[in-house]
Computed example of a mutant assay.
Amino acid sequence: MSASNNTDLEQVYREMEEEAVRHTRIALEHMKEYGIEPEGEVRPFLPPSERNEEIKRLPYEHETRQVVTYETEPGEFSALCPFSGLPDFGTLRIEYVPGDWIVELKSLKYYVVSWRQIGAAQEDLTPIIFQDLMKHLKNPEYLVVETEYNVRGGINTTCTIDSREQ
């Protein structure tokens, strides 16, 4: 790698670190407004706007209706807790009946793993993922996005959005 490429890469890392610190500071200030302060060590995290928003799609050319379900294995889906910067591991489940499009799985995988450096409340991730998928699928007969997180502090969190109930 040339010195120029090294310098460019170092600049990218610096900018990412600065963005992570800036976003972490904003998130912590927002929580403080509601009387919530982190306990222990806080690690920096990126905002949801930094996720990979590209989800490729393929045409669905069949007249037969089918239910398509994608579900991550435990540990594959995670984001960072905005209070600590520690990972929140969970399972992401997507179910839909295709309209004109289906999701291309490799791009879905890249989308899912792009959340690993994002700091957001568990309840905030589900609607963002739902909107991203709806944007790319365009016209599914229905779409359900569910996130179920590993138990923390004795509390299990499951968030579900079903387009039929919107």
Results as ranks from 00 to 15, higher is better:
residue 8 D to R: 14
residue 146 E to K: 12
residue 74 P to N: 00
residue 149 Y to K: 04
residue 6 N to F: 12
residue 97 V to M: 15
residue 24 T to D: 06
residue 8 D to N: 14
residue 95 E to F: 05
residue 132 D to A: 13
residue 92 L to R: 01
residue 84 S to N: 04
residue 32 K to C: 05
residue 67 V to M: 15
residue 166 Q to D: 15
residue 10 E to S: 08
residue 7 T to I: 13
residue 77 F to C: 11
residue 45 F to G: 02
residue 99 G to F: 07
residue 142 Y to R: 02
residue 22 R to S: 14
residue 5 N to V: 11
residue 22 R to Y: 12
residue 81 C to K: 00
residue 157 T to F: 12
residue 84 S to F: 00
residue 63 E to A: 15
residue 14 R to I: 09
residue 6 N to I: 14
residue 141 E to C: 07
residue 158 T to G: 02
residue 144 V to N: 00
residue 140 P to Y: 05
residue 7 T to C: 07
residue 29 E to D: 10
residue 3 A to D: 15
residue 109 K to L: 13
residue 149 Y to L: 09
residue 146 E to I: 10
residue 52 N to V: 11
residue 63 E to S: 15
residue 29 E to G: 10
residue 68 V to K: 11
residue 157 T to K: 12
residue 100 D to V: 02
residue 61 E to I: 07
residue 54 E to I: 14
residue 119 G to V: 01
residue 144 V to K: 01
residue 114 S to Y: 00
residue 130 F to A: 03
residue 139 N to R: 01
residue 104 E to V: 08
residue 97 V to F: 08
residue 148 E to V: 08
residue 79 A to Q: 10
residue 121 A to I: 06
residue 111 Y to W: 08
residue 26 I to L: 14
residue 147 T to Y: 00
residue 146 E to V: 11
residue 42 V to K: 05
residue 40 G to D: 03
residue 139 N to F: 05
residue 143 L to H: 03
residue 65 R to W: 13
residue 40 G to N: 04
residue 160 T to Q: 07
residue 143 L to G: 03
residue 123 E to T: 02
residue 69 T to W: 10
residue 41 E to M: 11
residue 145 V to Y: 04
residue 91 T to H: 01
residue 61 E to P: 06
residue 3 A to R: 14
residue 41 E to C: 07
residue 104 E to M: 11
residue 12 V to Y: 04
residue 158 T to V: 04
residue 67 V to H: 12
residue 165 E to R: 13
residue 164 R to C: 13
residue 16 M to L: 13
residue 14 R to G: 02
residue 116 R to C: 09
residue 50 E to H: 09
residue 137 L to T: 00
residue 91 T to F: 02
residue 27 A to V: 07
residue 127 P to V: 04
residue 114 S to L: 02
residue 31 M to I: 02
residue 158 T to Y: 00
residue 119 G to P: 03
residue 58 L to H: 09
residue 30 H to L: 13
residue 91 T to Y: 01
residue 36 I to S: 06
residue 104 E to I: 09
residue 2 S to P: 12
residue 131 Q to F: 10
residue 59 P to Y: 08
residue 56 K to Y: 11
residue 61 E to Y: 10
residue 112 V to E: 02
residue 34 Y to H: 12
residue 1 M to G: 15
residue 166 Q to I: 14
residue 137 L to S: 03
residue 12 V to W: 06
residue 124 D to S: 14
residue 162 D to P: 06
residue 155 I to Q: 12
residue 130 F to V: 03
residue 164 R to G: 11
residue 51 R to N: 13
residue 156 N to P: 05
residue 59 P to C: 03
residue 42 V to M: 08
residue 155 I to F: 11
residue 6 N to C: 10
residue 48 P to F: 04
residue 73 E to S: 11
residue 65 R to A: 15
residue 138 K to E: 06
residue 40 G to T: 07
residue 83 F to A: 15
residue 81 C to N: 00
residue 148 E to T: 12
residue 103 V to C: 02
residue 162 D to E: 08
residue 71 E to I: 13
residue 6 N to W: 10
residue 34 Y to M: 12
residue 119 G to S: 05
residue 153 G to D: 01
residue 48 P to T: 05
residue 122 Q to D: 09
residue 21 V to N: 11
residue 16 M to H: 06
residue 152 R to G: 05
residue 39 E to K: 08
residue 35 G to A: 06
residue 127 P to Q: 04
residue 28 L to T: 01
residue 48 P to C: 12
residue 92 L to I: 08
residue 17 E to W: 09
residue 128 I to L: 15
residue 25 R to H: 10
